[in-house]
Design a protein around this nucleic acid. Structure first.
Lengths: 108, 108
DNA sequence: TGGTCATATAAATATATTCGAATATAATGA
DNA sequence: TCATTATATTCGAATATATTTATATGACCA
């Protein structure tokens, strides 16, 4: 965990390396503030687990938080994160398509 | 490690969640074929370690390989990976700049 | 055939991540 | 003040990842 640019980059990408966090980013992809309770309901995650994932994302600067009364709201800190997210999703689906074609042809 | 889209997405992003692999992607960012030996020299990694990282990336479809004589060459499979890479790098550096400004103002 | 080069694989160890259970805190309302 | 709601923190077990050393494979050459 040194702080050269490669480690920083890798640490930032760790935010995206867990399915729960990917789901949470998708929930927050509109760039608006979302209360924890909403994410818990929609995602169906355990309260502690969800809170820990939000804390990881916040610690790495991927999301911001604000408190209002007893609720805490989170939002994505930089919409370029969503652009990167969508690029990776596209890579995955064209990779899947390519493997599908190979499969059809009996290759692989 | 289920295979819903969130897990797939997370698994793919794991490729980017290690500093050695980030460095390797940077070495391969031109989209051309690079022999393992070159990456080993430039990056200064142990042979086995390098080989395993390349294997992880290949297993997740991020890079392709071809063999020529006794050398093995690797290249990035989809240049959108580099576009996503650059977006994240930009997020990091504008985050760093923003934190710098806060520091100047005595905030944090 | 035997040796060497380039790379891969295996096994061992050290470290990190994930999740759930229990507990803590802070805001609100009775 | 006490109870309740919303969220965070701590801890431990299970699992995953990274690194090193040793060994294996496959291509080439003498």
């Amino acid at each position: 965990m040194e702080d050269d640019i490669y480690s920083l980059h890798a640490e930032t990408c760790k935010v995206f390396s867990n399915p729960v966090r990917i789901r949470l980013l998708e929930l927050m992809r509109d760039g608006k503030w979302h209360p924890v309770g909403e994410m818990q309901k929609v995602g169906g995650y355990g309260q502690a687990n969800l809170s820990q994932h939000l804390s990881v994302m916040r610690g790495r600067g991927a999301i911001y938080s604000k408190k209002e009364g007893r609720q805490v709201f989170y939002r994505i800190s930089d919409m370029r994160i969503i652009r990167a997210f969508d690029l990776i999703r596209a890579v995955i689906s064209s990779g899947a398509k390519a493997r599908g074609r190979l499969l059809e042809k009996g290759g692989y």
